[in-house]
Amino acid sequence: MSILIIAEHDNSSLKEITLTTVTAASLIGGDIDVLVVGEGCTGAAEAAALISGVNRVRVADHACYNGQLAENVAALIQSLANDYSHIMAPATANGKSILPRVAAALDVSHFSDIIGVESADTFKRTLYAGNAIATVQSSDNIKVMTVRGTAFALAEKKGSAPVESLTQVHDLGLSAFISEALAVSERPELTSASIVISGGRGMQNGDNFSMLEKVADKLGAAVGASRAAVDAGFVPNDMQVGQTGKIVAPDLYIAVGISGAIQHLAGMKDSKVIVAINKDPDAPIFQIADYGLVADLFDAVPELEQAL
């Protein structure tokens, strides 16, 4: 068996979620190669070489991979695919966009967002916003899949894999990168933070999120949101937790002014400890919270900040 993992990175550094995909791959067994595709991505490649259990890092560094355009990156992966039994990527926006394209090009099926490895051809994944878990088996010669970051532990960083440059360029000319509006935050990333505090429609506006930010800064936490808060324009889309946003599983998740719709729960119910602050004692979020405070958030949140 031989596995290719597509690294998630921002060219200069590797995203931690890549380490969880390596752990998932190590449960399958066999040689693990990591592919770093980007422009000016030496930093990310060097970081990938440190991951324990990695056999080789392959780097495709070219302007045509700027912005991880799916057409070009998929063509590159397709050209390497025949050396591998498995192709895996973290279930990020990039992974989810690129790997199904690769799978179809190889005429094989694709598993999205796996949460368990049963054997080399059998995996677990969730359906219906996490209300069902399916065990699925593929009969294809190459297995292509994305991996949910919260379902696997981080691989260690004690390795020293060789780094190899790939010289062939796959520029299909179908698409072009224009611009990026990236969130800048000093706080930890939502998907890897050990504490997350999220706000919902109950926050009433974007300015009130500063109350959550103050708590977050005291706890070293990331700030998240429900879809309702994002749709209302309180906060940007990259903060959405849920079935169709980000999946998080921190040690502590604090839900503030969030009712607890199944689509929100799908993104956070694997957190170790869940706290809910909501003024409605019947809010469904209390049914899954370890600790609940039936309170007005405009009293409870400043009080919490003071108490920390």
């Binding site: 209300n131 069902a132 399916a134 119910k269 919270a289 370890d290």
Partner: peptide, 17 residues
Amino acid sequence: RIRTLKVETPNIRQGGE
């Protein structure tokens, strides 16, 4: 190409205090 071997209910979280 895919066979579903089984479908299960996830662990249901219990509410606390």
